[in-house]
Design a protein around this nucleic acid. Structure first.
Lengths: 337, 337
DNA sequence: ATGAAAGCGCTAACAC
DNA sequence: GTGTTAGCGCTTTCAT
């Protein structure tokens, strides 16, 4: 790496003290002669001197100015967009986001979490598929690191950004009910994180209100929350003999549509499909996907702002920021016939 | 934030010296009595003591163990997947990737670059849409930070991972030629980065070999490299009266297909569409997209490995790692009629 | 078995 | 105008 040049090297080379160099280079050099100043700057450029980040932050007791972001899957449109929102806010405050994609792997998640903590991160945004608040708190330990929960969590407490999942479920159910569907299937993940529980409760409550019975034994289909998961569940959906299906998220819905297409089932003519999230792809698949929109980018922005706020104000109090959802009606749902 | 507990606090609390604490906590405490050791560990847990990262790396002269990754757009399937590849390798070596999505914004890119450099990053992977190697070198300055170039760069030099873009262009052209297409349009971005130049040269050379004329004046359509860009270019493609179009990347192709669909043009019956990249969506759109496959995840893995290698071995020598491309034939292309 | 002391590279009171 | 000095929190050599 080539030995690093230190402030002392520069001082020696210039025949001045380190103070002089330090002050001048930090823009506090008014009191030094122009000649000295020029010399120092010249030397710095010549030798490519850069202050050691560690030494500097050690003495200035700066925070690391880093926030951690833990998501299941950065290459998904949903989390990719979310992260862009976070990054946008962070950049604004010259905070660096450490982004980790842990692929729903518990060990990896905890691993990343520890690594971030070691680096004395200022705060965390966690969309963990596996960790409970207990686990998180245990790893954080006595450190005073604020965190914001988001999306897939097994938590009913803690500061977090939420969307109105119950309402989202209702909107979806009402939409299908309005179209006259009576036989409806649900695709949901094996482990129900809090947001899914809400969403499904809203969905089922609303069906009931419309006097529609959900055949829980046959029409609640478990599948991974992914395109692949939806794709593989196509057979089960067909077998269920339903006229509509509500997928856990858009990825899943898009996979399901592909699976149905390959089996010769027409969407929405034979089966209506609803997703959830409103990822940017929805408009590009065919038929365009009807879904419940979450303001994904805003969620990222909101989470980041909330976290920064918490970092700066140091208030213990639990906060919850709630975002609205809405029905986005496109082409994958139609009146039953 | 709560005052941080230092090693001295622990030492004082335990009634021992800082040496004792340091040694024991760093697993070099064999020489101390079991009783002391227990006491120290207990105190650490009780007070949540964690060594200060800066102080520690200052004295241990550790590197930051961070690598920077600069991409145009983290929420795109292409770069998302690439980044996952990078992260995979980094994790393995306990390196932390700093991931920045700069949205093809020159100022932002340089900003991020500086920020990373300030934090004495160990190396960089740059898929910059705007910076030349000159700009990069200028910002890096005298620092000895290795970097790997990737994808969109205006560079014909420097250590980098490449795919055989010329060959990819050829494969695409040959495929369309084989299907009997004579009237072909190209969708390309306004600024041609090196990989695009190669790709298009390969494409055109191959057309020529097949005695197909490309009407450069009308059938080379400029559009942003995005779904939106492709979507908006649909009218121009129709107007060009071609039987096939080769889009700059899959995102663009997917947008284009949507645009054509909305205008009642059937793909591939009326117009065949080819993309480039083989992002994971290609199989989920309808018709499934024919494309030239780049091994995206492998590129990420390769770039990261190469960078780590360069960081550790400190060799100046320019290296190039080349990855193969291949034709993936799906449903968006068909024999002309 | 334990500790004193030096020093990593830097900044900032406080001299001179 | 410029330098001396005292740390920041930590690890490590070398005594004791």
């Amino acid at each position: 790496m080539g030995k690093k040049v230190t402030i002392r090297d520069i001082a020696r080379l210039a025949g001045v003290s380190v103070t002089t160099v330090s002050q001048i280079l930090n823009g506090k050099g008014e009191r030094f002669s122009q000649k000295t100043r020029d010399k120092i700057f010249k030397l710095r450029d010549e030798y490519g001197y850069v202050p050691d980040f560690n030494a500097r932050s050690l003495i200035l007791r700066q925070s690391s100015s880093m926030i951690g972001v833990l998501v299941p899957n950065i290459s998904s449109p949903f989390f990719g967009t979310f992260v862009e929102g976070v990054q946008h806010v962070a950049q604004h405050e010259r905070m660096i986001p450490l982004i980790f994609s842990a692929d729903r792997n518990a060990e990896l998640e905890q691993n990343y979490l520890s690594q971030m903590l070691e680096r004395s991160i200022d705060g965390l945004i966690i969309a963990s598929a596996t960790m409970t608040t207990d686990t998180i708190n245990r790893i954080i330990g006595a450190r005073d690191v604020p965190y914001i929960l988001f999306d897939q969590n097994y938590a009913q407490e803690g500061t977090r950004v939420l969307t109105d999942d119950y309402r989202g479920g209702e909107l979806a159910a009402q939409h299908l009910a309005d179209l006259g569907h009576k036989k409806i299937a649900i695709l949901e993940p094996n482990e129900l994180s809090e947001n899914f529980t809400q969403r499904l409760t809203g969905f089922q409550d609303c069906l009931r209100k419309n006097h529609i019975e959900l055949d829980v034994a046959h029409n609640v289909i478990k599948a991974p929350l992914s395109r692949r998961g939806g794709y593989d569940a196509a057979a089960a959906v067909i077998k269920a003999g339903v006229t509509a299906a509500f997928a856990g998220n858009d990825d899943m819905a898009i996979g399901l549509m592909r699976g149905l297409r390959e089996r010769g089932v027409k969407v929405p003519d034979q089966i209506s499909i609803m997703g959830y999230d409103d990822i940017y792809l929805d408009e590009y698949v065919s038929p365009q996907l009807t879904t419940i929109r979450q303001p994904i980018m805003d969620l990222g922005i909101g989470a980041a702002k909330m976290l920064l706020n918490k970092i700066h104000s140091d208030q213990e109090q639990e906060q919850i920021q709630r975002f609205p959802v809405e029905l986005v009606q496109r082409q994958s749902t139609a009146r039953v016939r």
